[in-house]
Design a binder for these strands. Structure first.
Lengths: 349, 349
DNA sequence: TTGAAAGCGGTACCAC
DNA sequence: GTGGTACCGCTTTCAA
């Protein structure tokens, strides 16, 4: 006999194999434990619990397996499964670095929910400060099947993710990125709509509120750019989300003789409008104010707040796009404009 | 030479081994690929890339490995690693079923972010409709090291999670659950504080806004109960978050002769206050209104909105608790009250 | 109808 | 200093 089994050399045929590994008390039960208890093989356990249609297992056996599984409280191990399968159902989404507004965070929530319904595992990954392309490496370790890339992830990051097996990489942001499907959300459009309205009302100089809150400039800058693109004379007005600063800005508005302000969004608009009114200015008489996002609160203010309604794709819709791309990874990267901005004129302009 | 490799029996010394598995073009590179390219073993690759301190690897070898890894764009496979390690760094959090208010969602965001910083992988899991204890099984498949259990997960669910290896299970909710650390957030307290204030102002009958929006009753019901607990005569006022319904409720308030309303939170309070005022009632003259959450907008209303400030633990704090529990899983389940409610009286009451 | 066993990708122990 | 290799838990041929 030439062939020698590695663990049990023929020279010592009597050497008992390591005692059938008894899952230690307190250890997490595995399919092997279930198999042992049911008196079948691990293969059979797998067949039964996954309802493998290619294999017919007798009813008594099925019952024994199910009972054993229940008795042990067996739960399959997702990592082991996907390691074997060679792919996961993980969809990676970035955690917004700053508590986003109600509009956007509502959108993300809906998306997440819709993905869950499609049986994906949604993993929210903090961009932990490290640059996008660097974060990509950390993300790739999870072998996500799809990724909603954060703004700031460059082509290299995308490439890393795709090479690691991501079937769909989708960027949500102002500009398309190489080799990724792009859902264009160009906030310049928001500024443009607001500014054109104000221009039409005869205001050439427009104050533009720029939130001092970190993380918001990603939205604020493009909105400002959009205002400028109309040819209006845009005056940036840095504003922290608190009353004192609002009072300052309000007085600055008077000094500058600004007749119109685009207030970034409805919440900042509310803050500013209050400050302007408290300073004795009439809205829209002395200064016109327009917000964005079309939140409920705008309708409740007096004067009612003019705003720019932002249309985002529904989470369900986006989730289905993800699903489609996962199923058909060959699809050519597609660039689609998904953000609409329309004027909602009320009384404040 | 006695030992014979199992794949190449001595009988067929000429049988060529399956051609050294060449990672197919386009396949995700593994540590074996790196090893081959660097001309070393997988073990060495592992040592080098993990900076294993127990093993000294020569500098030239390290360089070769690093270069090979970079050239191939190698990224380790998290599932394989944690399968081997026997544990993950996954922390599971429930996705709120309904877009939570700014206060709570801000808290969750912060928590998530703090956990990321502590090097945990945060997985947001949708409760996908299935009952808590059922969801627990799905959750357990990920073998999370810690779980923030959603309200509605019973003791059985907790048990499943723990048996699957979760070192820390923490419930955030109104009541403690067996065998889990409990962060008590008892919203009755909010109702109690509001009601006691109104009682002190001489109102015995108190309207209590109950959002019609699904998912919010988890908070609304306890708040109502808190009002009742003071002995006040609570009148539930179902209210959808829209102007028309608010007008209805406002007129109902007149009919019922309600002199005071606790409006669930500041946003509903704003909505209702507007409707009440539009109906010709004075606030607080005819009807006193108090909200909750102490949002900025309350300060901007006229009259300024009285409210109940809710103190939540900081996300950082909770993240550190999670981390501590993970490190010391033996710790006795602890029940802690983490929600403070304090009156902020302004002008609307 | 069932079982034996090869691996998925990494890690870490033990030899050399 | 390095290499060989068992093993983590599961799926899936291939044989019996």
């Amino acid at each position: 006999m030439v062939q020698i089994p590695k663990q049990q050399p023929a020279q010592q045929p009597s050497a008992p194999k390591a005692p059938a590994k008894q899952s230690a008390r307190g250890a997490v039960p595995t399919s092997a434990d279930v198999a042992r208890l049911a008196g079948v093989s691990r293969a059979t356990v797998s067949y039964v619990l996954n309802n493998t249609s290619a294999v017919r297992i007798s009813e008594p056996t099925r019952r024994r397996v199910h009972e054993a599984a229940k008795e042990l409280g067996y739960v399959p191990h997702a990592a082991a499964r996907s390691l074997r399968a060679g792919h996961t159902r993980i969809v990676l989404m970035p955690t917004p670095e700053v508590p986003a507004g109600p509009l956007y965070s509502g959108f993300l929530n809906e998306l997440q929910w819709a993905l869950s319904r499609l049986d994906y595992t949604v993993v929210q990954y903090g961009s932990v400060g490290v640059g996008g392309d660097d974060a990509a490496r950390a993300w790739a370790e999870l072998r996500p099947v799809a990724v909603l890339a954060p703004v700031g992830m460059g082509p290299d990051g995308i490439a890393v993710l795709k090479r690691s097996g991501a079937k769909a990489v989708i960027t949500l942001g102002p500009a398309p990125v190489e080799d990724a499907h792009a859902l264009l959300m160009d906030h310049r459009e928001v500024g443009r709509v607001a500014a054109e309205h104000l221009l039409a009302r005869g205001h050439r100089r427009i104050g533009v509120v720029m939130p001092r809150e970190e993380g918001l400039d990603a939205f604020a800058e493009p909105r400002l750019a959009g205002v400028r693109a109309t040819g209006a004379d845009a005056v940036p007005l840095p504003l922290a989300y608190e009353e004192e600063d609002a009072a300052q800005v309000a007085s600055r508005i008077s000094e500058l003789g600004l007749g119109a302000v685009f207030a970034y969004n409805d919440e900042y608009a509310m803050l500013l409008m209050r400050a302007v009114q408290d300073a004795g200015c009439a809205v829209p008489g002395d200064v016109a104010v327009i917000g964005a996002d079309d939140l409920m609160l705008g309708r409740l203010l007096r004067p009612r707040l003019s705003t720019v309604r932002i249309d985002l794709p529904s989470g369900r819709e986006l989730a289905e796009l993800v699903d489609r791309l996962v199923r058909d990874p060959a699809a050519e990267p597609e660039v689609r404009d998904v953000m609409g901005a329309t004027l909602v004129r009320r009384e404040s302009t």
